[in-house]
Every structure is written in C-alpha cells, then in structure tokens.
Computed example of a mutant assay.
Amino acid sequence: MTDETSLVPVGPFSNADRDAVYRAITTRRDVRSQFLPDPIAPDIFDRLLMAAHHAPSVGFMQPWNFLVITDPGVRGQIKAAFTGANEEAAAQFPDARRALYSDIKLEGITEAPINLCITCDRDRGGPVVLGRTHNRDTDLYSTVCAVQNLWLAARAEGIGVGWVSIFNDADLRAILKLPDHVVPVAYLCIGHVAELHAEPELQARGWATRTDINDLIFADTWGNAP
C-alpha cells in the first residue's frame, strides 16, 4: 500500500503556473551572442543543476555528470577546438549557404560566465539496468532530458543557455580528460543575457523555418495521416 503522505497532487497546475511552463518552453532560445559578463549567483546556478538532476532517467540510473568550466586556459583550448571544427563544418555547405553559415555566431565560449559540459557515464548502474536491457542508448536519451530540464529552468530564471555542438569528439575528450566510458553530451554556455530573440535566431536569419506540426503527425503507422 502506498503511503499517502508521499504522494503529490495529480490535478492540473493553476492557470498561471501552467502558462509559465508553456512560456518557458516557447520562449527558450539558443543563446550565442547576447551574453553579459555579470556572474550568475551561486544559488541560481545550484537550482539549475538541481533541475537537471531531477530529469527522468531509465532505471533511475542518473547517468549524468556536470563539468563546470571557468578556467580561461581550458576555455581557450575549447574555443580553439570549436574554431577548427567550425571551419571544417563551413566547408561542407554549398556556396549559397556557406556565407550565411559563416556570418552566424554559433558559440559564446569566452563570453559566457559559465561553461558546462553535461556528460553521460555509460557504466552507471552496472552492466544490466532496468529499462535499458534492449536499448543501450536510453542512458544518452536520459542525459538529454537533463539538458532540457536545465535549459527550461534557466529560462525561468532569466538565464541564457547556448548549446555548442560543433566539436570533434576526440578534441573535447582530450581537453576535458574524459575517461573512455564517459560521453560528452552537451557543451553549454550559460549566463545572463541582454536580450532574447522573439523567434529562434536561425529562423530570424533565414536559415530554416519551423515545420508545420500537422506535417509531423501520423496515425498508427508511419506516413498514415490522422
């Protein structure tokens, strides 16, 4: 029998609380160039990490770790790794896209007060984990949930977050001295921001537009319109 004192209400949030959740979701932005130098108060940053730590995880394995990077020397190495990978990335786009790609700022590594690498320990929980027996990658999915939790909490706190994904994996591993069984899932730049774009920056810059959700919904089997 469940101890009723350990339960939480199952009903909907108040209108104001519900609207706040959806506001955080719809106004979350990937921040690259709007960071301010102001430090983040320790209590706020602690809340962001705790929000990430409350993410769902398969088998309650909690595979994440949080590497907080403030050392200018380490950041300099990270920035150099990004720059090299970004040059490689630019060369992969056709000429018509390459100029726009090169004009878009894609990181705030040196500008943001805090850099955070969220990793996944693929050995966490041992060789057999409840819910992971037939899909080993569920630990990676769980870690991405932690990233999203932190991002939404940051939006509620008025803190900007930018995900820097343009790295060669070996470079990031070497700089951060990650063991073989630990995967770098998200490298985040975190800080106060001067402003946020009203829409995703890549949409505002003409790189892409949001897909109509009606084109993404199928019924029962792939491709079957509802």
Rank of each mutant, 00 (worst) to 15 (best):
M1A: 06
M1W: 10
T5D: 08
V8N: 11
P12Y: 09
F13S: 10
F13Q: 09
D17F: 11
R23C: 09
I25V: 15
T27H: 13
R28L: 12
R29P: 04
V31P: 02
F35I: 06
F35K: 11
L36R: 13
A51N: 15
A52T: 03
H53K: 14
H54G: 07
A55V: 11
F60S: 07
N65G: 05
F66K: 03
V68W: 13
T70F: 06
K79E: 14
K79T: 08
G84S: 06
A90G: 15
A91H: 05
A91D: 11
P94G: 03
A96N: 12
R97L: 14
L106T: 08
E107M: 08
G108D: 01
I109F: 00
A112S: 04
P113Y: 00
I114D: 02
L116R: 01
L116Q: 00
L116V: 02
C117W: 00
C117R: 00
D123I: 01
D123T: 03
G126M: 04
G126N: 04
P127V: 01
R132N: 11
R136G: 12
D137P: 03
D137K: 11
S142R: 00
T143H: 00
C145L: 02
V147R: 06
W151Q: 04
E157N: 12
E157I: 06
G158A: 06
I159G: 01
G162S: 05
G162D: 01
W163C: 03
D169S: 12
D169R: 13
D171M: 02
R173D: 02
P179D: 06
V183P: 04
V183E: 12
P184C: 10
L188A: 02
L188Q: 00
C189H: 01
G191Q: 07
L202I: 13
L202S: 07
Q203Y: 08
A204C: 10
W207E: 12
A208P: 06
A208K: 14
A208N: 09
R210D: 04
D212C: 12
D220L: 10
T221F: 15
G223Q: 05
